[in-house]
């Protein structure tokens, strides 16, 4: 691998966003293609970050810092990538379900997904089934992610999945769920595609779901 991409990965790991931005421009000047820089530099770098995060060596804010650095590089590549259509990993609608106002977990998932290159449409908290349906439809989302902290509100996840069905969208969008009281058994029972136990797992799960589409 070229020296510039190795250095880019190091800067990405350290969260040095202006260095990553500069390196991206330099790599283009050296004649590398945008998809090459994206795949072998930025995404490969984030894979190392992801590996160390799963191993417990990196913390969430450090991953977010690296993600910010990746975005700095991505912004440089975006106009070039748009031509080849490789800019986004997929579109994900997220929200905390109706009746539930807890959002730190959902926000974390959103930030981590964004860091991994997904486009996020965050509907906030207390999101009704109708609002989820509307957003999935308008954005042509690949995945919808629902969060709940309370055993009393997690049933809204079921109502939302039913609303997606009624609107004829259920086979067009994958559904992932998460939150403290949620389990994979519950996810299965309500007809969701996947359960993700934490923000790191949510990224892997989203990748799998997009690949399944």
């Amino acid at each position: 691998m070229s020296d510039i991409l190795v250095q880019m990965q190091k800067d990405l790991y350290a969260g040095n966003f202006s260095e990553v931005e500069t390196a991206t421009k330099t790599a283009l000047d050296l004649g590398m293609s945008a998809p090459e820089i994206l795949n072998d530099g930025l995404i490969a770098g984030m894979d190392i970050v992801g590996r160390d995060f799963r191993a417990g060596d990196l913390f969430i804010p450090e991953v977010l810092m690296s993600a910010k650095a990746m975005h700095a590089g991505l912004e440089v590549l975006r106009p070039l990538l748009a031509e080849s259509g490789a800019a986004s990993q997929g579109k994900i609608v997220i929200g905390t379900v109706a009746g539930d106002l807890h959002d730190i977990g959902k926000n974390l998932v959103g930030m981590m997904l964004e860091g991994a290159g997904f486009e996020i449409i965050d509907l906030g908290t207390n999101v009704t089934p109708e609002q989820f349906v509307q957003a999935v439809s308008e954005n042509v989302a690949d995945v919808v992610g629902m969060s709940a902290l309370l055993t009393t509100t997690m049933l809204s996840m079921k109502s939302t999945i039913e609303a997606l069905q009624d609107a004829g969208l259920r086979d067009k969008v994958k559904v992932m769920v998460g939150g403290a009281p949620v389990t994979s058994k519950f996810a299965e029972d309500i007809g969701a595609d996947r359960y993700a136990p934490d923000a790191g797992a949510a990224v892997d799960t989203a990748r799998e779901l997009v690949a399944l589409k």
């Binding site: 969260g15 913390f59 969430i60 450090e62 810092m65 930030m111």
Partner: peptide, 14 residues
Amino acid sequence: GNFVADPHTYKFLR
């Protein structure tokens, strides 16, 4: 808001 992605959090993380 939240403090997760704030530079202050990053600085005092460890």
